[in-house]
């Protein structure tokens, strides 16, 4: 190494070269961190700024107030809290059901050997090739139809939205989970079976506690995915009271662009909190969980 560098360096020692290199890298990193954080800082600043302006001079407001938050949360026409509640409800229910349904299926695929197993597994993967956003027209018309018999699950209902999210979530997540289940040694459940446990008991008392980190990962992925979804919610929901925060907030700023900046910024900060928290929690778990499952597909 020293021979390669000393040939080129004219008077510069290796240590200074390295220090210069590191300094340069640090500079580049800081520039792009500024780029990454710039809009975020701006929104936080705007949300605290009484004039709700987006000008540079106001990035750190001189006299910060919580007025924007107050008027957002008390607004009669735009029920922000309702949107948040809708989003949290839909995301939680979808994530819990996804984890439950996929865990059941993954257990079977991982532990039982049966005739159509391979074909079903391939089918699950292939079903994901046609993303259900391409079927939005069909999904819309289907919910319109279902809503005539079950108003709870029709168009413009959170129930209908959850059904659609579940349909899209099963295939991929079952695959992901099966990979993790395969990493749990079979000896464990075989010995439980010898002790007279039924498959259901083996599943609940042996497997589930062992794969808990994975269940948490799928829960968080599913939650974040559902919470951030814009398309399905935009197509299927049509009233102010039913909107998720993704739809409500973006339509809200679309209406009266100028006057609403402060309130929008306040809403943006609040709406980002759930995913930021999950993202923070999942940082380590995500990496650990995903790699441990990838060992054996």
């Amino acid at each position: 190494m020293s021979s390669a560098t000393s040939k080129k360096s004219s008077g510069m020692t290796m240590a200074t070269r390295r220090r210069l290199d590191t300094a340069l890298r640090l500079l580049v990193a800081l520039i792009f961190i500024a780029y990454a954080l710039f809009p975020v800082v701006f929104v936080i600043g705007t949300s605290l700024n009484p004039s709700g302006s987006l000008q540079m001079a106001q990035i750190i407001p001189r006299n910060p107030t919580l007025d924007n938050y107050r008027s957002l949360l008390t607004s009669q026409t735009n029920p922000f809290l309702r949107w948040m509640a809708n989003s949290l409800l839909v995301s939680t229910v979808t994530a819990i059901l996804t984890v439950a349904l996929c865990a059941l299926a993954a257990y079977s695929f991982s532990r039982f050997r049966f005739k159509s197993r391979k074909r079903l597994l391939q089918g699950l993967l292939l079903s994901q090739v046609f993303p259900n956003i391409l079927a939005i027209v069909a999904v819309f018309l289907m919910l319109q139809q279902i809503g005539r018999y079950f108003p709870m699950f029709g168009l413009n209902t959170l129930g209908g939205l959850i059904l659609v999210y579940l349909g899209g979530a099963i295939g991929f997540n079952t695959w992901l989970m099966k990979g993790f289940f395969d990493t749990v040694p079979r000896d464990l459940d075989e010995s439980a079976m010898l002790d007279g446990a039924s498959p259901w008991q083996t599943f609940t008392t042996i497997i589930l506690p062992l794969v808990r980190p994975v269940l948490a990962v799928i829960f968080m992925l599913s939650f974040i995915g559902t919470y951030s979804d814009y398309l399905m919610a935009r197509v299927l929901l049509s009233s102010n009271q039913q909107y998720t925060v993704a739809v409500g907030l973006s339509l809200f700023i679309g209406q009266q662009f100028g006057q609403r900046w402060g309130e929008f910024a306040a809403g943006a900060v609040l709406a980002a909190i759930p995913t930021m928290i999950l993202f923070y929690i999942s940082q380590s778990q995500l990496q650990g969980g995903l790699t441990s499952g990838a060992v054996k597909g």
């Binding site: 974040i224 919470y227 951030s228 993704a246 907030l249 943006a268 980002a272 995913t275 930021m276």
Partner: peptide, 10 residues
């Protein structure tokens, strides 16, 4: 880490 529906509007 922030949903796109927020940052695009920002």
């Amino acid at each position: 880490a922030i949903p796109a529906f927020i940052t695009v509007k920002v």
